[in-house]
Design a protein around this nucleic acid. Structure first.
Length: 545
DNA sequence: GCTGATGCGTC
DNA sequence: GTCGGAC
DNA sequence: GTCCGACGACGCATCAGC
């Protein structure tokens, strides 16, 4: 008898099948709980990671394996024969690489006579191998390892193998359900599991803690980031006041969310996804390490010069390790999570602000208390005038709720600009939008006198499923060509797109692109000669300052 | 050494 | 970041 | 209220292939 036995991957795959075919939340929890209950600790950790599409633990906190379409295609090539056309066709039909793999394997070209048995641990080892591949030849190595696993996979197992590897599970299960299931499986309180998760921030660890009765070990600790609290979008100052009454308001900066932990001489910076980004921003480390106290702060990293380009300037630095030049970076702190040796998460904002300002850090975000819509409105205008995105309004009595987008923090952003554009193409969707033209490419006129259409962006967001289905048929009737994933259509459908701002772009012929585009309405009343032109785009771009 | 494809993380 | 859909 | 999935633009790192 082998000591290192491990749960079968086939059972895991069957569970996933059941999960994806049920829409009932309670049924999902029940299925998960009865599966998780019988796993020993190591398998439990792996199973939770896999359920969340987290392939490996090496190299990346988010479990990414640096594998997507191309690598999977190359591995499948080793196992089954198919043409490029076939593959694209299948992908178009299924909108999901895992399902494509299942389909290809079940056509039965290459099933070996004897298949090794796949266990969770064996898959995890393979995933680790793939994720840790680096340097010259790493692509080949990834393909080889994946091929090895595929050779031992039944079609169903291949489906989930690929889904995990590409972090593309789509089984309707995420952290929330796992938390509930772990509570049920190991007979512990749901709240205890949730609370541990907010602090430990790793569902696979939390599940194991629940199993082993160690949930109470969880506590806030320095150098373990927590999920940042989020703000709910609001449509007006009045709505915010109606919901919260009195609130604290501060500017919404166009930067990068940052959590700063300091203990003694050690300073660590964490991004919104809780990746350690310390190495990219030495300026901030230097500023923070001058301070005396130990603490954890929440705030926004901003670029102080560059006008409209502030966010882009930051983005350039984000992966740029070991640079020599200095940049005008500033960490604006707006919350304190930990100070004086204790967690502040359960204190109301009023007191957290007090603790924050008591640290003597000179870049705390200024804030004001308001209780009238007009005052909030004024704060909003002032913020825009300072070149910021809008405001965030917070309930002074609220505790810090990690990861929550509740009605305790609201954000109010600048009103959208809009353009009337015409749809010139549409792309096939993935997952639940498989086989559906679900992403529209649109264009403006070159000028008032020149009706040539120049592409400027893509959008789907804003349409309902029903509308997508209707326009799918419309586009198929107006199809004039097809290339890759895109169907080109006669320019007949005029839509109004909203966006946050306009960017220079090499991606589109127009030379511009839209930030956060969405479809506001379909302008069936408008004709092709009524859409906006490039001149207007340029005007809007310049007006941004 | 350069270029294009690919992957990933920020908003 | 955005949004719609389902519970 | 909350969770989930289907999507936008950008820029950088990495690797394959020339």
């Amino acid at each position: 008898m082998k000591a290192a036995s491990s749960a079968l991957f086939l059972e895991f795959s069957l569970l996933c099948e059941k999960l994806s075919s049920t829409s009932s939340n309670s049924e999902k929890v029940r299925l998960l709980a009865s599966y998780l209950r019988n796993l020993e600790s190591e398998d439990l950790g792996i199973a939770v990671d896999f359920l969340l599409g987290r392939a490996s633990r090496v190299r990346s906190s988010e479990g990414r394996a640096n594998v997507a379409f191309a690598t999977v295609r190359d591995a499948l090539c080793q196992v089954v024969t198919f043409s490029d056309d076939q593959l694209l066709q299948l992908y178009k039909e299924h909108g999901d690489l895992g399902e494509v793999a299942m389909e290809l394997l079940s056509s039965g070209h290459a099933a070996p006579l004897v298949r090794g048995q796949l266990t969770l641990k064996r898959i995890r080892d393979g995933m680790d191998d793939i994720a840790s591949a680096q340097g010259s030849g790493s692509e080949k190595r990834k393909v080889m390892t994946l091929t090895g696993l595929l050779l031992d996979s039944s079609p169903l197992e291949a489906k989930y193998l690929i889904k995990i590897l590409t972090s593309d599970m789509r089984i309707g299960v995420s952290e929330g359900f796992i938390a509930e299931a772990a509570a049920e499986a190991f007979s512990v309180g749901k709240e205890a599991v949730r609370k541990a998760y907010l602090l430990v921030n790793d569902m696979s660890k939390v599940a194991v803690m629940a199993k082993e009765g160690r949930l109470s070990d969880a506590g806030f600790s320095l150098f373990t980031p927590i999920r940042p609290m989020l703000a709910e979008p609001a449509s007006s100052a009045r709505q915010i006041i109606d919901d919260m009454g009195r609130c604290y308001v501060e500017d919404k900066y166009d930067g990068i969310r940052l959590q700063v932990h300091k203990k003694g001489g050690e300073v660590r910076l964490y991004s919104r996804a809780m990746d350690d980004v310390t190495r990219f921003f030495p300026e901030i480390v230097e500023q923070i390490s001058r301070l005396n106290e130990d603490f954890a702060l929440d705030g926004e990293l901003i670029y102080e010069a560059g006008g409209r380009l502030r966010f882009f300037s930051l983005q350039k630095l984000l992966r740029n390790e070991g640079r020599r030049e200095k940049h005008p970076l500033k960490f604006v702190a707006f919350d304190a999570l930990y100070a004086k040796g204790r967690s502040l998460l359960d204190l109301p904002l009023v007191e957290r602000k007090r603790e924050l300002f008591a640290l003597g850090y000179d870049n705390c975000a200024p804030f004001k208390e308001v209780s009238a819509p007009e005052d909030l409105e004024r704060a909003f205008k002032d913020s825009i005038a300072r070149g910021n995105e809008g405001i965030v309004a917070k309930d002074p009595e609220s505790t810090y709720q990690p990861g929550a987008r509740g009605k305790r923090w609201f954000k109010l952003k600048k009103a959208l600009d809009t353009l009337d554009v015409v749809v010139i193409g549409a792309q096939y969707g993935n997952g639940k939008r498989k086989g559906l033209l679900s992403d529209y490419v649109f264009a403006v006129r070159r000028s008032r006198d020149d009706p040539t259409l120049v592409p400027i962006g893509k959008a789907y967001s804003g349409l309902t499923d029903e509308e997508l289905r209707d326009y799918h048929d419309f586009f198929m009737r107006n199809k004039i060509g097809e290339k890759g994933n895109t169907v080109w259509v006669l320019p007949r459908l005029v839509i109004e797109v909203g966006f946050q701002s306009i960017q220079r772009s090499a991606r589109y012929e127009s030379g511009y692109a839209l930030r956060f585009p969405r479809i506001i309405s379909v302008r069936a009343d408008k004709k092709l000669d009524e859409i906006d032109d490039l001149q207007r785009v340029e005007d809007l771009f310049k007006a941004q300052g």
